Simulated scan of single mutants.
Amino acid sequence: MNKAQLVDAIASEAGITKTDARKSLDAFIKVTGKALAGGDKIALVGFGSFAVAKKPGRTGRNPRTGASIKIAAKNVVKFKAGVELNALVK
């Protein structure tokens, strides 16, 4: 499912216009990104939780040449699904 299909599904499920669904989804993504960038965790009971984890720098290997390369440390977003979301998938 891509973003347009998700917006369509949200609009039909919630009984709102596609424009309002797109605005809501965009706002959720923006607010979530800002909160995570600020160091906050986001927990949505039943859905799941978002958090930022730090990946340390490491040494990798270029698959084409076999040369060693240094991979910089970075922050990544982690998502852990909630109980209700897991129950819907089974």
Rank of each mutant, 00 (worst) to 15 (best):
Ser12His: 08
Ala14Asn: 00
Gly15Asn: 02
Gly15Cys: 02
Thr17Gly: 15
Thr17Glu: 04
Lys18Phe: 07
Lys18Gly: 05
Lys18Ile: 05
Thr19Pro: 00
Thr19Gln: 06
Asp20Cys: 00
Asp20Ser: 08
Arg22Lys: 14
Lys23Gly: 04
Ser24Ala: 15
Ser24His: 02
Ser24Lys: 02
Leu25Lys: 01
Ala27Val: 11
Phe28Leu: 15
Phe28Arg: 00
Ile29Thr: 11
Val31Glu: 13
Lys34Ser: 13
Lys34Tyr: 06
Leu36Tyr: 09
Ala37Leu: 13
Gly39Tyr: 08
Gly39Gln: 08
Gly39Trp: 08
Asp40Gln: 14
Asp40Trp: 04
Asp40Ser: 14
Lys41Asp: 15
Val45Cys: 02
Phe47Pro: 08
Phe47Glu: 13
Phe47Ile: 05
Gly48Gln: 09
Gly48Lys: 12
Gly48Ser: 08
Phe50Cys: 13
Ala51Gly: 14
Val52His: 07
Val52Ile: 15
Ala53Ile: 09
Lys54Val: 10
Lys55His: 15
Lys55Val: 09
Pro56Asn: 14
Gly57Thr: 03
Arg58Cys: 11
Thr59Ala: 05
Thr59His: 08
Arg61Tyr: 06
Arg61Cys: 02
Arg61Gly: 03
Asn62Asp: 06
Asn62Ile: 02
Asn62Tyr: 02
Arg64Asp: 00
Arg64Gln: 13
Ser68Thr: 13
Lys70Asp: 11
Lys70Ser: 09
Ala72Lys: 11
Lys74Trp: 01
Asn75Leu: 03
Val76Pro: 03
Val76Leu: 08
Val77Trp: 04
Val77Ser: 07
Lys78Asp: 03
Phe79Asp: 07
Phe79His: 09
Val83Phe: 01
Val83Asn: 10
Val83Ile: 03
Val83Glu: 10
Val83Pro: 03
Glu84Gly: 00
Glu84Ala: 13
Ala87Arg: 14
Leu88Asp: 07
